[in-house]
Protein backbone atom coordinates (compact mmCIF):
# COMPACT_ATOMS: atom_id res chain seq x y z
CA UNK A 1 0.00 0.00 0.00
CA UNK A 2 1.14 3.53 -0.75
CA UNK A 3 2.07 5.25 2.45
CA UNK A 4 3.67 8.54 3.17
CA UNK A 5 5.05 9.66 6.49
CA UNK A 6 3.69 13.14 7.20
CA UNK A 7 5.32 13.55 10.57
CA UNK A 8 7.80 11.59 12.62
CA UNK A 9 10.64 12.54 14.90
CA UNK A 10 14.32 12.22 14.14
CA UNK A 11 16.31 9.84 16.26
CA UNK A 12 19.75 10.47 17.64
CA UNK A 13 22.60 8.35 16.39
CA UNK A 14 23.44 5.70 18.97
CA UNK A 15 26.91 4.61 17.94
CA UNK A 16 28.59 6.19 14.93
CA UNK A 17 32.16 7.12 14.05
CA UNK A 18 33.73 6.82 17.51
CA UNK A 19 32.49 3.29 18.02
CA UNK A 20 33.50 2.27 14.49
CA UNK A 21 36.97 3.65 15.19
CA UNK A 22 37.12 1.77 18.50
CA UNK A 23 36.18 -1.50 16.79
CA UNK A 24 38.79 -0.83 14.12
CA UNK A 25 41.60 -0.24 16.62
CA UNK A 26 40.78 -3.24 18.79
CA UNK A 27 40.67 -5.33 15.63
CA UNK A 28 44.10 -4.15 14.53
CA UNK A 29 45.41 -4.80 18.03
CA UNK A 30 44.02 -8.34 18.23
CA UNK A 31 45.31 -9.13 14.75
CA UNK A 32 48.81 -7.86 15.53
CA UNK A 33 48.92 -9.78 18.79
CA UNK A 34 47.94 -13.06 17.17
CA UNK A 35 50.66 -12.59 14.53
CA UNK A 36 53.24 -11.88 17.20
CA UNK A 37 52.43 -15.16 18.95
CA UNK A 38 53.01 -17.23 15.79
CA UNK A 39 56.73 -17.28 16.53
CA UNK A 40 56.81 -16.81 20.29
CA UNK A 41 53.78 -18.91 21.20
CA UNK A 42 53.72 -21.58 18.52
CA UNK A 43 57.36 -21.71 17.50
CA UNK A 44 56.93 -20.80 13.81
CA UNK A 45 60.36 -19.29 13.57
CA UNK A 46 59.98 -17.75 10.11
CA UNK A 47 57.66 -15.19 11.78
CA UNK A 48 60.13 -14.29 14.53
CA UNK A 49 60.72 -10.72 13.27
CA UNK A 50 57.01 -10.04 13.85
CA UNK A 51 57.14 -10.79 17.57
CA UNK A 52 58.38 -7.50 18.95
CA UNK A 53 56.65 -5.27 16.41
CA UNK A 54 53.43 -7.16 16.99
CA UNK A 55 53.37 -6.82 20.73
CA UNK A 56 54.28 -3.13 20.63
CA UNK A 57 51.52 -2.42 18.11
CA UNK A 58 48.99 -4.52 19.99
CA UNK A 59 49.67 -2.69 23.23
CA UNK A 60 49.75 0.81 21.73
CA UNK A 61 46.56 0.34 19.71
CA UNK A 62 44.74 -1.03 22.71
CA UNK A 63 45.83 1.86 24.88
CA UNK A 64 44.49 4.33 22.30
CA UNK A 65 41.23 2.50 21.56
CA UNK A 66 39.36 3.09 24.86
CA UNK A 67 39.80 6.85 24.50
CA UNK A 68 37.29 6.69 21.66
CA UNK A 69 34.89 5.14 24.14
CA UNK A 70 35.50 7.89 26.66
CA UNK A 71 34.80 10.50 23.98
CA UNK A 72 31.67 8.62 23.02
CA UNK A 73 29.99 8.22 26.41
CA UNK A 74 28.06 11.10 27.85
CA UNK A 75 29.48 10.83 31.36
CA UNK A 76 33.16 9.85 31.03
CA UNK A 77 33.82 10.61 34.70
CA UNK A 78 31.39 7.84 35.56
CA UNK A 79 33.41 5.23 33.64
CA UNK A 80 34.30 3.58 36.97
CA UNK A 81 30.65 2.48 37.23
CA UNK A 82 31.56 -0.16 34.64
CA UNK A 83 33.76 -1.95 37.17
CA UNK A 84 31.44 -1.64 40.15
CA UNK A 85 27.88 -2.12 38.92
CA UNK A 86 28.21 -5.27 36.88
CA UNK A 87 25.62 -6.69 34.56
CA UNK A 88 26.88 -9.95 33.11
CA UNK A 89 24.21 -10.02 30.45
CA UNK A 90 25.79 -6.96 28.84
CA UNK A 91 28.79 -7.46 26.52
CA UNK A 92 30.09 -4.04 27.57
CA UNK A 93 30.59 -5.42 31.10
CA UNK A 94 32.63 -8.29 29.69
CA UNK A 95 34.58 -5.78 27.67
CA UNK A 96 35.45 -3.49 30.53
CA UNK A 97 37.41 -6.34 32.14
CA UNK A 98 38.92 -7.53 28.88
CA UNK A 99 40.11 -4.00 28.16
CA UNK A 100 42.07 -4.11 31.43
CA UNK A 101 43.35 -7.70 31.32
CA UNK A 102 44.41 -7.78 27.68
CA UNK A 103 46.79 -4.78 27.68
CA UNK A 104 48.29 -5.92 31.01
CA UNK A 105 48.95 -9.34 29.51
CA UNK A 106 50.40 -7.68 26.40
CA UNK A 107 52.82 -5.67 28.53
CA UNK A 108 53.96 -8.72 30.53
CA UNK A 109 54.33 -10.76 27.34
CA UNK A 110 56.30 -7.95 25.70
CA UNK A 111 58.49 -7.49 28.78
CA UNK A 112 59.59 -11.13 28.78
CA UNK A 113 60.06 -11.07 25.03
CA UNK A 114 62.43 -8.10 25.21
CA UNK A 115 64.24 -9.76 28.13
CA UNK A 116 64.64 -12.83 25.87
CA UNK A 117 63.09 -15.15 28.43
CA UNK A 118 61.45 -17.63 26.12
CA UNK A 119 59.48 -19.77 28.52
CA UNK A 120 57.41 -17.02 30.20
CA UNK A 121 57.05 -15.31 26.82
CA UNK A 122 55.47 -18.45 25.44
CA UNK A 123 53.15 -18.82 28.44
CA UNK A 124 51.91 -15.25 28.32
CA UNK A 125 51.65 -15.43 24.55
CA UNK A 126 49.37 -18.43 24.82
CA UNK A 127 47.32 -16.78 27.58
CA UNK A 128 47.05 -13.74 25.33
CA UNK A 129 45.48 -15.55 22.40
CA UNK A 130 42.09 -16.23 24.03
CA UNK A 131 42.25 -12.71 25.49
CA UNK A 132 42.93 -11.19 22.08
CA UNK A 133 40.11 -13.20 20.54
CA UNK A 134 37.80 -12.17 23.38
CA UNK A 135 38.74 -8.49 23.32
CA UNK A 136 37.74 -8.26 19.72
CA UNK A 137 35.07 -10.96 19.71
CA UNK A 138 33.13 -9.18 22.44
CA UNK A 139 32.75 -6.12 20.22
CA UNK A 140 30.99 -8.40 17.75
CA UNK A 141 28.65 -9.45 20.54
CA UNK A 142 27.91 -5.80 21.33
CA UNK A 143 26.44 -5.42 17.87
CA UNK A 144 24.90 -8.90 17.78
CA UNK A 145 22.97 -8.14 21.00
CA UNK A 146 21.52 -4.99 19.44
CA UNK A 147 18.55 -7.02 18.37
CA UNK A 148 16.57 -4.14 16.96
CA UNK A 149 18.99 -3.83 14.03
CA UNK A 150 18.88 -6.51 11.37
CA UNK A 151 22.39 -5.85 10.09
CA UNK A 152 23.87 -6.36 13.57
CA UNK A 153 21.70 -9.07 15.01
CA UNK A 154 23.50 -12.08 13.57
CA UNK A 155 25.49 -14.82 15.23
CA UNK A 156 28.06 -14.34 12.49
CA UNK A 157 29.03 -10.91 13.81
CA UNK A 158 31.76 -11.97 16.32
CA UNK A 159 33.50 -14.29 13.84
CA UNK A 160 33.10 -11.73 11.05
CA UNK A 161 34.80 -9.19 13.28
CA UNK A 162 37.59 -11.62 14.14
CA UNK A 163 38.24 -12.45 10.49
CA UNK A 164 38.48 -8.81 9.54
CA UNK A 165 40.65 -8.20 12.61
CA UNK A 166 43.19 -10.75 11.41
CA UNK A 167 43.05 -9.43 7.84
CA UNK A 168 43.68 -5.86 8.96
CA UNK A 169 46.28 -7.02 11.49
CA UNK A 170 48.35 -8.83 8.85
CA UNK A 171 48.16 -5.86 6.47
CA UNK A 172 49.21 -3.39 9.15
CA UNK A 173 52.03 -5.70 10.18
CA UNK A 174 53.34 -5.89 6.61
CA UNK A 175 53.44 -2.10 6.43
CA UNK A 176 55.08 -1.65 9.82
CA UNK A 177 57.67 -4.38 9.25
CA UNK A 178 58.64 -2.80 5.92
CA UNK A 179 58.92 0.64 7.51
CA UNK A 180 60.95 -0.75 10.39
CA UNK A 181 63.33 -2.72 8.18
CA UNK A 182 63.77 0.08 5.68
CA UNK A 183 64.38 2.95 8.08
CA UNK A 184 65.05 1.70 11.61
CA UNK A 185 67.11 -1.48 11.25
CA UNK A 186 70.88 -1.71 11.09
CA UNK A 187 71.02 -3.30 7.64
CA UNK A 188 68.25 -1.10 6.12
CA UNK A 189 67.23 -4.19 4.19
CA UNK A 190 63.73 -5.52 3.77
CA UNK A 191 63.14 -9.19 4.54
CA UNK A 192 61.47 -10.11 1.24
CA UNK A 193 60.72 -13.73 2.13
CA UNK A 194 58.87 -12.71 5.25
CA UNK A 195 56.86 -10.07 3.42
CA UNK A 196 55.89 -12.43 0.60
CA UNK A 197 54.98 -15.09 3.14
CA UNK A 198 52.75 -12.64 5.02
CA UNK A 199 51.26 -11.52 1.71
CA UNK A 200 50.17 -15.07 0.91
CA UNK A 201 48.73 -15.45 4.41
CA UNK A 202 46.85 -12.19 3.95
CA UNK A 203 45.44 -13.35 0.61
CA UNK A 204 43.90 -16.47 2.12
CA UNK A 205 42.54 -14.63 5.14
CA UNK A 206 40.87 -12.21 2.71
CA UNK A 207 39.17 -15.19 1.06
CA UNK A 208 37.85 -16.32 4.44
CA UNK A 209 36.63 -12.82 5.23
CA UNK A 210 34.92 -12.52 1.84
CA UNK A 211 33.24 -15.86 2.43
CA UNK A 212 31.85 -14.64 5.77
CA UNK A 213 30.67 -11.32 4.33
CA UNK A 214 29.07 -13.17 1.43
CA UNK A 215 27.23 -15.66 3.61
CA UNK A 216 26.02 -12.87 5.89
CA UNK A 217 24.70 -11.00 2.87
CA UNK A 218 23.02 -14.03 1.30
CA UNK A 219 21.15 -14.82 4.49
CA UNK A 220 20.12 -11.17 4.93
CA UNK A 221 18.67 -11.17 1.41
CA UNK A 222 16.51 -14.23 2.16
CA UNK A 223 15.58 -13.36 5.75
CA UNK A 224 12.77 -11.19 7.17
CA UNK A 225 11.82 -7.81 5.74
CA UNK A 226 14.06 -5.71 8.00
CA UNK A 227 17.03 -7.88 7.03
CA UNK A 228 16.25 -7.48 3.35
CA UNK A 229 16.00 -3.72 3.80
CA UNK A 230 19.42 -3.73 5.49
CA UNK A 231 20.88 -5.78 2.64
CA UNK A 232 19.45 -3.41 0.01
CA UNK A 233 20.80 -0.44 1.95
CA UNK A 234 24.38 -1.67 1.65
CA UNK A 235 24.00 -3.15 -1.83
CA UNK A 236 22.08 -0.40 -3.57
CA UNK A 237 21.30 2.32 -1.07
CA UNK A 238 23.27 5.07 0.58
CA UNK A 239 26.11 2.81 1.71
CA UNK A 240 26.59 0.89 -1.53
CA UNK A 241 29.70 2.81 -2.64
CA UNK A 242 31.36 2.33 0.73
CA UNK A 243 30.36 -1.30 1.00
CA UNK A 244 30.77 -2.59 -2.55
CA UNK A 245 33.49 -0.38 -3.99
CA UNK A 246 35.67 0.69 -1.07
CA UNK A 247 35.27 -2.17 1.40
CA UNK A 248 34.98 -5.15 -0.89
CA UNK A 249 36.39 -4.27 -4.31
CA UNK A 250 39.27 -1.98 -3.32
CA UNK A 251 39.71 -3.40 0.18
CA UNK A 252 39.48 -7.11 -0.51
CA UNK A 253 39.16 -8.30 -4.10
CA UNK A 254 41.91 -6.16 -5.67
CA UNK A 255 44.37 -6.84 -2.81
CA UNK A 256 43.57 -10.54 -3.13
CA UNK A 257 44.40 -10.50 -6.85
CA UNK A 258 47.59 -8.54 -6.23
CA UNK A 259 48.68 -10.96 -3.52
CA UNK A 260 47.52 -14.29 -4.87
CA UNK A 261 48.69 -14.12 -8.50
CA UNK A 262 52.45 -14.86 -8.44
CA UNK A 263 53.08 -12.57 -11.42
CA UNK A 264 51.72 -9.54 -9.56
CA UNK A 265 53.33 -10.32 -6.21
CA UNK A 266 56.19 -7.84 -5.90
CA UNK A 267 57.17 -5.61 -3.02
CA UNK A 268 55.34 -2.49 -4.28
CA UNK A 269 52.12 -4.41 -4.95
CA UNK A 270 52.23 -6.06 -1.53
CA UNK A 271 52.59 -2.59 0.00
CA UNK A 272 49.74 -1.25 -2.12
CA UNK A 273 47.54 -4.22 -1.25
CA UNK A 274 48.24 -3.80 2.46
CA UNK A 275 47.35 -0.11 2.36
CA UNK A 276 44.11 -0.93 0.54
CA UNK A 277 43.25 -3.59 3.10
CA UNK A 278 43.96 -1.35 6.10
CA UNK A 279 41.72 1.37 4.65
CA UNK A 280 39.08 -1.11 3.47
CA UNK A 281 38.65 -2.68 6.89
CA UNK A 282 38.05 0.73 8.42
CA UNK A 283 35.20 1.18 5.99
CA UNK A 284 33.94 -2.28 6.91
CA UNK A 285 33.66 -1.19 10.55
CA UNK A 286 32.06 2.08 9.57
CA UNK A 287 29.50 0.46 7.26
CA UNK A 288 28.54 -2.17 9.82
CA UNK A 289 28.09 0.34 12.63
CA UNK A 290 26.53 3.27 10.79
CA UNK A 291 24.49 1.45 8.14
CA UNK A 292 23.24 -0.87 10.87
CA UNK A 293 21.48 1.95 12.65
CA UNK A 294 20.62 3.98 9.57
CA UNK A 295 17.12 2.67 8.87
CA UNK A 296 14.59 4.22 11.28
CA UNK A 297 12.83 1.68 13.44
CA UNK A 298 9.38 3.25 13.63
Amino acid sequence: MDTQVLYNIFHQEAFGFNIAMYFYLTGLSAGSFILSTLAYGFGMNQYKPLGRVGVILATLLLVIAPFFLLIHIGMPLRAWHLFVYLNWSSPITWGSFLLILYPINCIIYGYFMFKEKMKPTRIFGLIGIPLAIAVHGYTGFILAFGKARALWNTALMPILFLASAIVSGIALMILVVILKDRFFSKEKRIDRDLIMNLGKLLAWMIVFDLFLVGSDLLVLLISHSDAQAAAYLILGGKFSVMFLIIENLLGKIIPFILLAVPKFRTLPTVIAASILVVVGIFFMRYVVVVAGEFIPLL
Binding site: H11, Q12, A14, F15, L69, H72, I73, G74, M75, P76, R78, A79, H81, L82, Y85, S90, I92, I142, F145, G146, K147, A148, R149, E293, P296, L297, L298
Partner: peptide, 16 residues
Protein backbone atom coordinates in the same frame (compact mmCIF):
# COMPACT_ATOMS: atom_id res chain seq x y z
CA UNK B 1 22.91 8.69 38.86
CA UNK B 2 24.05 5.36 37.49
CA UNK B 3 23.79 5.88 33.72
CA UNK B 4 27.10 6.62 31.97
CA UNK B 5 25.51 7.60 28.65
CA UNK B 6 27.02 4.78 26.59
CA UNK B 7 23.94 4.65 24.32
CA UNK B 8 23.84 0.87 24.15
CA UNK B 9 20.21 0.88 25.28
CA UNK B 10 19.35 3.33 22.50
CA UNK B 11 21.07 1.12 19.96
CA UNK B 12 19.24 -2.00 21.05
CA UNK B 13 15.69 -0.70 21.66
CA UNK B 14 13.40 -1.88 18.83
CA UNK B 15 11.13 1.12 19.40
CA UNK B 16 13.67 3.92 19.35
Amino acid sequence: HRCIGCRYCMASCPYG
